[in-house]
């Protein structure tokens, strides 16, 4: 019976000591410890979140870089293509121009040649005429120096003229 009879003194002291212990530990141990642990958990969670975010950012950045690179490539290709086109165009234009110029030169040359030729022919004709006249003069002069011959000529001319 001794064992299961609670002693009043021990009850009193246990109650006093236990209540004091709860108050002291609550104020100086449980509160600081649990607050610190909560805070630490929070900071760990935040750190993990930040790391996750950083990873995402890096991924985005890589994707961005790739996109920019692709764009640059496309632009380069476009530029090259344009340049080639321009080059071709320039060359074609130059060719056309040269052709036209050459034709023009050809035509004017031909014209000139024709003109020169005509001038030459005309001059030749004139000289031939002059020469012919001179020759004719000389022939007539020589022919008409002999009186007999003049008479013969007149006679033949009169005989040719049929006086009928």
């Amino acid at each position: 019976m001794e064992l299961v009879t609670p002693a009043i003194g021990l009850i009193f002291w246990t109650a006093v000591v236990f209540i004091l212990l709860v108050i002291l530990l609550k104020k100086f141990a449980w509160k600081p410890i649990l607050t610190a642990v909560d805070k630490r958990n929070e900071s760990i969670e935040n750190a993990l979140k930040a790391a996750e975010k950083a990873k995402e950012d890096i991924e985005n950045l890589t994707a961005d870089n790739e996109r920019i690179l692709n764009e640059a490539k496309l632009e380069r290709d476009a530029l090259l293509k344009e340049a080639r086109e321009i080059k071709d165009k320039v060359i074609a234009e130059a060719k056309d121009k040269a052709k036209i110029e050459a034709e023009k030169i050809l035509v004017s040359a031909k014209e000139q040649i024709t003109n020169e030729k005509m001038a030459a022919i005309t001059e030749l004709k004139n000289q031939v005429a002059e020469l012919s006249i001179e020759i004719a003069e000389k022939i007539i002069k020589s022919e008409l120096q002999d009186l007999n011959k003049q008479k013969e000529l007149v006679t033949s001319a009169i005989s040719d003229k049929d006086l009928n």
């Binding site: 064992l3 299961v4 009879t5 609670p6 009043i8 021990l10 009850i11 246990t14 109650a15 236990f18």
Partner: peptide
């Protein structure tokens, strides 16, 4: 001791 456990369970 039953007095101690008594106090704790009374709380």
């Amino acid at each position: 001791n039953i007095a101690v456990t008594l106090v704790l369970s009374v709380f």
